[in-house]
Simulated assay, not measured.
Amino acid sequence: MPENYSRGSLNAISYLSYYFVGALVSTLGIVLGPLCAAFHKDPSFIGQVFTLMNIGMFVPIMLGGLLMKKWGLQKPLAVAALLTLVISVALFAAPTLTMFSVAVAVIGACGGIFMTIGSYLVVRINPDEKSRSSSLIFTDFFFSLAGATLSFLLAWMFKLGASWMAMYAIMGALGVLMLLLVLRARFPSAEAQPHDARHADAAVAEPWGMSVWLICLALFLFLLAEPIFTMWTPGYLQSRFAMLPEQAALYTTVYWVAKAIGLFLNQFTVKWMKLRTFLLICTLVGMASVTLITNSANGTLILLACGAFGFFNSGLFSGLMSYGSLQVSRSSPTLISALLTCGTVGTLLFASVSSLVNGRFGLHGAVNAATVAYGLLLLTLLAAVLRSKAERLHQTAAAV
């Protein structure tokens, strides 16, 4: 029997979930300077504080499968949205370093809930391989849209003299919007119902296989490389090329705009190109681009490479999520949670790892940590494609 749920509202919730997390992660490089000035701390210290946000995000993602099975899909989203609003108001009432540390941890946890359930909703309402890949890529478009819009908006606001708290006023407003969407939506059950008992037994017994774990590692490396790049590139460009902050912000804005464009277009690309081919091409071009960005002495070439990196990097996260979910015949909340958990370990570690590298090797070393992580991502993806079961499983399913 078909389930009664509001597909339009669920898609909107998924889009806003990714926009929310994109707003948190993609603006770190922009908000870093105002935070350092406000609290009289160096960038390495504030980078370590942002580790609290990543820890907060990691915990609900790690427990996402259990969370959805126990409380369903609507209740955790509503609680996270309300909590975002409350903590944003509390931060305005007491804008201290201690309160900021608590706030970024709590808002990070809310973002983790949004991202876990938002990702599962897309997989849950799109069982077909091509529609799932296309929908996940379009959902990820909103992550990049947050980077493209908020990087520009915040750079402009800070230039006009706005406080760092402007960022968290935006997060509170997003929490209100999420709460309104969640309360009016009709949700499906947390688990897709198998057609019969035989399918149910197969879903329980089916092993994930090495390909799933390799894709988990690839997601980890991707979510280690990208935030290192976005966090340290503005400061690196200011240091190397004596740029003003708003000039350096242009480079990351170009990255996010190109990524948003790529995500919008790539939802169509994956409908006529094999997903594994799409992933390999994007990773190869991304590797070449990030190498240029972090090592070229030509500012114009770096700007062009930022655009290429954004465009070809665009479909990797959602493409890897889709490819991982297709390694089994029936995806579950536990599998989606495992893919996100392994990926989020990269987000959890990037601030600490890159801050340590910055302290030891300087800004050039910090941005090149992204290059190293991307090279490992390419090798891991090649191994995952060689061990993949997705093509065999879903060709068989299509034939049946």
Results as ranks from 00 to 15, higher is better:
residue 230 T to Q: 10
residue 395 Q to P: 00
residue 361 F to P: 03
residue 323 Y to N: 09
residue 226 E to K: 05
residue 332 S to P: 12
residue 129 E to H: 15
residue 294 T to L: 01
residue 238 Q to T: 05
residue 387 R to T: 06
residue 388 S to I: 01
residue 309 F to H: 12
residue 252 T to G: 00
residue 288 A to N: 03
residue 33 G to P: 00
residue 234 P to Y: 03
residue 32 L to P: 01
residue 359 G to P: 00
residue 221 L to Y: 14
residue 25 V to D: 11
residue 260 A to E: 06
residue 289 S to G: 03
residue 136 L to I: 03
residue 397 A to I: 05
residue 42 D to V: 07
residue 142 F to N: 15
residue 366 A to Q: 01
residue 35 L to P: 08
residue 312 F to K: 11
residue 352 S to L: 14
residue 313 N to V: 00
residue 389 K to I: 05
residue 167 M to I: 02
residue 238 Q to K: 15
residue 148 A to T: 02
residue 54 N to A: 15
residue 338 A to N: 15
residue 197 A to S: 06
residue 91 L to E: 00
residue 22 G to D: 05
residue 214 L to G: 02
residue 110 C to S: 06
residue 393 L to M: 07
residue 3 E to W: 08
residue 288 A to T: 12
residue 238 Q to W: 08
residue 201 D to K: 15
residue 332 S to W: 11
residue 334 T to N: 14
residue 132 R to G: 06
residue 51 T to Q: 01
residue 160 L to A: 15
residue 186 R to L: 01
residue 200 A to R: 11
residue 376 L to Q: 11
residue 26 S to I: 07
residue 279 L to H: 09
residue 381 L to G: 11
residue 390 A to Q: 13
residue 263 L to W: 06
residue 314 S to E: 08
residue 118 G to T: 12
residue 371 T to Y: 12
residue 28 L to A: 10
residue 14 S to V: 07
residue 100 F to Y: 13
residue 2 P to M: 04
residue 291 T to F: 13
residue 319 G to Y: 09
residue 196 D to S: 14
residue 339 L to D: 08
residue 326 L to R: 13
residue 218 A to F: 11
residue 262 G to A: 11
residue 369 A to W: 09
residue 337 S to V: 04
residue 214 L to W: 09
residue 373 A to Q: 13
residue 276 R to N: 09
residue 324 G to R: 12
residue 213 W to P: 04
residue 126 N to I: 03
residue 106 V to A: 06
residue 72 G to A: 03
residue 73 L to D: 07
residue 110 C to D: 05
residue 243 M to V: 01
residue 356 L to Y: 13
residue 22 G to I: 04
residue 92 F to K: 11
residue 240 R to K: 12
residue 80 A to C: 02
residue 71 W to K: 06
residue 289 S to V: 06
residue 22 G to H: 07
residue 52 L to I: 02
residue 282 C to E: 10
residue 132 R to L: 15
